[in-house]
Amino acid sequence: MSATRAFARTAPYVVPVLDRAVHRLTGGKVLPSARMLPGVILTATGARSGLPRRTPLACMPQEDGGWLLIGSNFGRPGHPSWTGNLLVHPEAEVNWQGRDIPVRARLLSGAERERAWRDALAFWPPYAAYQARIGRQIRLFRLERR
């Protein structure tokens, strides 16, 4: 279901709103979308506004304690705004399992990106459907604790 165009049309308007509300009401203890995939709340500085922007995101926890974020935008044409924010302001914060953790984001490229993309597809196969229906390359970010 998550690879369908119908999901891509509706999920961006429902999932983040629900995630933010429940996360706030439970003091960071519950993130509904994390029932499907692990998730974080990313707080990044807006590229144009300079204001903090909170975005619930699926993530791939890494063995070293970092995270991989996939800018799929549910397979919609444009890059999600949080990716542009991280390009301009790579220092951010994630809320992971109720704890705020300062991080530094790095856009992956080349062989490192290819390895991460293979891992992402093994982790969540619908990413392949998202990539197949858009003309842009999905951005992958590595978040490292600072």
Rank of each mutant, 00 (worst) to 15 (best):
L51I: 08
Q62T: 14
P12M: 03
L68A: 09
V40T: 02
M1R: 09
L143E: 03
L18Y: 07
G66L: 01
T83S: 09
G78Q: 15
V88Y: 03
D64E: 09
R48S: 10
Q131H: 05
A122Q: 12
L108Y: 03
A128P: 08
A44Q: 03
D19A: 06
G110L: 06
S49P: 11
A111Y: 11
R99I: 13
S33F: 11
Y127P: 05
P125N: 10
S49I: 08
A21K: 15
L140G: 12
A58P: 05
R54P: 08
D119M: 13
P16R: 00
Q131F: 02
G28R: 05
M1I: 11
P16F: 03
Y13A: 14
R145F: 10
G28T: 06
N73S: 09
G39W: 00
A129I: 07
N73V: 02
H23N: 15
G75D: 06
A116T: 01
G78L: 15
S109C: 12
R104D: 11
L31I: 11
R99F: 03
A44E: 03
D64F: 03
G71A: 12
L86M: 02
R54D: 13
R24I: 08
R54N: 14
E91A: 14
T10W: 15
G50M: 02
R9Q: 11
G65A: 02
L86H: 01
T45E: 12
A34S: 15
A21N: 13
A122E: 12
P12N: 01
R76F: 01
T83Y: 00
T83I: 06
G39H: 00
F74W: 14
Y13L: 14
G66T: 01
M60T: 10
V22T: 04
A120C: 04
L25T: 07
G39F: 00
R139Y: 12
M36F: 13
T43Q: 08
G39R: 01
R133A: 01
R136E: 11
Q137C: 11
Q131A: 05
V30M: 07
M60D: 08
A120K: 00
L143I: 02
A34L: 06
R9T: 09
L25Q: 09
V14C: 11
P126F: 02
N85F: 04
V22G: 01
L51N: 14
F123D: 07
F7K: 06
F123S: 02
S81M: 14
V88R: 15
V88E: 15
H79P: 09
Q137R: 15
R104L: 15
A6C: 09
A129R: 13
A44N: 07
P32I: 00
K29C: 10
A122N: 12
A34D: 10
A21H: 13
E91C: 13
R113N: 07
S49K: 11
N73P: 06
G98S: 04
P102E: 04
R35T: 15
G28S: 05
S72A: 10
G75Y: 05
R106E: 15
L68I: 11
S49H: 10
L87E: 15
P12D: 00
R139F: 13
L57N: 04
H79N: 14
W96H: 12
Q97V: 09
A34Y: 00
Q97E: 12
R20A: 15
T55R: 13
R133M: 05
H89A: 09
